[in-house]
């Protein structure tokens, strides 16, 4: 009986110890969660607040997210106001100063990234209101994925210095995998260099830039602003005149509208799953990159 009790106590301590040692990481997006898992390995338990098909600009401030943030050791967000409509309120209510802005448990993933579409000059709301500090959809470029991983790694080391060696090791293998994948996909995409595509919302600019494609007109009049009939007509004329082969749209944007424009202009519509978990094949971050870029390749080939 005594022995049994001792075993039970030891077992419980081990369980408690194991649970305690795991760093609880909460991210706003599935891509950040996937990268955090790669970097953290067994030392972390990672959870994303949103799913692979959430429009991160317009997620809801759900109170169950407060519970998740309340228990987090590290909070990772995309930043640049992408989540400004829902994250500040949740952090404020989290009762967890460890992850408040400025605390070691608060990690903005964009630090060090070469931002596209950075506004120059005066910023006014008449330019649309959702990309005020540059384009925040930077994760679909796998090289930016490495920078995100580096940022997460450094935050993890800061909170859990004992895991430094493991985080460094995991980070380097993720970095190598990402570079290898990028080179492979760049070779695949090399025949399409310089081709131009039309987009619904400007959320593909980083992946296009990486693989040598260029972004033509936006169907949205301004980021977040639906097209007027006059603007839609201009886009259709643009597609026809320049023989643009593809119109890109994300699953959470206005897919049917983008489809109409593509059809009228004579281009193909491609719904690009640029978030981890958006489609079943995009299980991890690098799977998502692979799936998206291969879809682009296929769309441009046929």
């Amino acid at each position: 009986m005594k022995r049994l009790f001792a075993i039970a106590v030891i077992g419980m301590c081990a369980v408690a110890n194991g649970a305690f040692a795991q760093l609880r990481v909460v991210t706003t997006s599935t891509d950040l969660a996937s990268i955090a898992k790669e970097v953290g390995g067994n030392r972390v338990a990672v959870e994303s607040l949103t799913t692979g098909n959430t429009d991160l600009h317009y997620a809801q401030a759900r109170p169950d997210y407060i519970v998740k943030l309340n228990k987090a050791d590290l909070f990772v967000s995309i930043g640049l106001e992408l989540e400004a409509g829902w994250v500040p309120l949740l952090l404020n209510q989290s009762r967890n100063p460890k992850i408040h802005r400025g605390a070691p448990g608060y990690c903005v993933a964009y630090a060090g990234i070469d931002l596209a579409e950075k506004p120059t000059g005066e910023i006014t709301r008449q330019m649309g209101d959702i990309h005020p500090y540059g384009n925040p959809h930077y994760w679909p470029d796998p090289i930016n994925g490495i920078v995100i991983a580096r940022n997460i790694k450094e935050s993890m080391i800061k909170i859990d210095p004992a895991g430094k060696d493991e985080y460094e090791k995991n980070f380097h293998s993720f970095k190598d995998a990402a570079v290898k994948k990028t080179k492979e996909l760049m070779a695949l995409m090399s025949p399409h260099k310089g081709k131009e595509v039309v987009v619904y919302h400007t959320e593909f600019v980083y992946v296009l830039r990486r693989f040598g494609l260029s972004q033509g007109m936006m169907i949205e009049e301004l980021p977040g602003v639906a097209p007027s009939p006059a603007h839609a007509k201009k886009v259709i004329e643009y597609i026809r005149a320049r023989k643009v082969p593809l119109v890109l749209v994300s699953p959470w944007s206005n897919v049917s509208y983008a489809g109409k424009i593509a059809k009228e202009g004579g281009a193909k519509l491609l719904v690009l799953p640029i978030q981890t978990g958006s489609v079943p094949e995009a299980k991890t971050y690098l799977d998502m990159i692979d799936t998206s870029v291969r879809m682009l390749h296929k769309g441009l080939t046929q």
Partner: peptide
Amino acid sequence: LLGGKSAVEERSAEKSAGF
């Protein structure tokens, strides 16, 4: 890119009014 500022260094530099 990795030689640039990391989140740990740039954390307080975020000029995000919404945060």
